[in-house]
Amino acid sequence: MTELATPVGAGAQAPRAFAVTGQRAVAWACTVVAGVAAVWAGSLLGWWWSPFACGLVVGFAARPLRCRRRSAIAAAALIALAGWGLPLLWRVLDGEPVGAAARTAAALAGLPPAPVLVVSATMLTAVCQSLAGAWLGWALGVDRPPADQGESNAQADQDGSTAPGDPSEA
C-alpha cells in the first residue's frame, strides 16, 4: 500500500542497504499505482473525495511502516495528480474536447475563459485533498514499536523519519 520500511540493523552493509532501497522504491511505486487506480475508479463513481481517502490511507500507513514523511507526501501528491489527471488525459485521447469543457466551466464560474484555470483548479483540488488526507493519516498513525533501540535509531538515521518519542519530530 505504501512505502515499506525494511528493518535494517545498525551495522548493515552497503549492498544490503542498496537492496533495501530498491525494494522500498518498488513498494513505493506499487503504492502510487494502486492509489492512482483507486482515485481514478473513485472519480468514475462520483467519489470526488477519493484523493482525500487515499491520502489518508497513505499517511496512516506510513508511520507504522516507517516510511519517511516526505516520501508519503510525495506519494499522496502523485496519486492525486495522476488519479485525476490521467482520466482527463484519457478523455483527450478519446477525442473529447476537454479544453472546451474547461473553457465553458471557467466562463460559467465567472472566470476568464482560459482552460488552464480549470485544469489547474482541478489538480489543486485533488492535491489539496490528498495532502490533507496524508497529514491527517500521519497524525493519527501509530508508530510501530521498534524491535530494539538500535533498530530504531538506525532507521531514523537512514531515512530521516522520526523515532517514537523523538522530540525533534516536526
Partner: peptide, 24 residues
C-alpha cells in the same frame, strides 16, 4: 458563498469534465 462545491464539480469522471463527452 459564490464558490460552488468544487469537489463534485471538478471530479474528472463526473464533474464539469463529463460535459466534454456530450461535446464530442
Amino acid at each position: 458563498g459564490p464558490v460552488p462545491p468544487l469537489g463534485q464539480a471538478l471530479d474528472p469522471g463526473t464533474g464539469v469534465w463529463a460535459s466534454a463527452e456530450d461535446a464530442a
